[in-house]
Amino acid sequence: MSAKTMPAKPMSAERILSPPHRPGQGTRRLRLNLVAIPILLLISLVWVYPFLWTVSAAFKTQAGVFSGGASLIPDQLNFENFRRAWVNAGFSQFFANTVLYSAVSTLIEVVKAALCGYVLARYDFPGRQFLHRLIIATLFIPVASIIVPQFVLVEQLGLLNTRAGVILAMSGSAGALYVLMFTGFFSTVPNELFDAAKLDGAGFLRTFRLVLPLARPVIAVVVIFQFVSNWNEFNIPLVFTLGQPELQNLAVGMLSFRGEHSVDWSGFAAGMTISFAPMLIVFMLFQNYFVRGLAGATKG
């Protein structure tokens, strides 16, 4: 293969110039697009249908939801459902809790993972290898299987049925993977940089503050992934807020539509629309960070 790539050199100049001149290229692209895009559109329609249904149901009356079948056109356009979800069903509270839980847990996770990952990557201290191996070994422990002792711990700290307890449990049980990501990244930073910092007389903290901005792609990945997964976290908030609706997040509070309100579908749809709209905007804004950041992180 390498022998064949050798003559590529003289050809590459022609390749750069050629696209507009080569007749087959343009029509081939068009043909491929004509095949691929309709198929993708069809799959996409199936994929977003539940969203479209939810948004349209948010405007429907209860009767409209029941008689609507697969239809996406609401029988009316009123915002009464939104008001009911936001005020009566306590969505404003769920929403505020979700924002609080996601933001604070994500912050704690990023900070602890970055600090630990940095030290693991740059410094040799007794027990370093042991800690590193331990983290890898416990990487795949499912939350569900150790949630009972976590519950007991939070209870004994006197934090059961408090927001601090939920946040502690959420940010405590995740993060081993992120430590490894930071360790991987910081160990690819060239040693020369640290030597230069040392020559300039930078101490421990100054050096850290110097290299931290380099880790921006890793930080972006950790923040985005952890924020999304905290936003959607269900198991921990469910167990740690049993019977405390004012502490629940959106994912758990959503269940109240099933119980007390004997499934108020249009209200539920409105609540759901409220909860996914901000995340959709966040994702569309940071889309590129996802793929680029993840690619950067897996390289390390």
Partner: peptide, 21 residues
């Protein structure tokens, strides 16, 4: 100091729960 935040949470919410389970 840098290791402490991770170690505390790791101990409390992963290692100890494993042993306790």
């Amino acid at each position: 100091v840098f290791l402490l935040p991770f170690l505390l949470l790791y101990l409390g919410f992963t290692l100890w729960p494993l042993v306790a389970t």
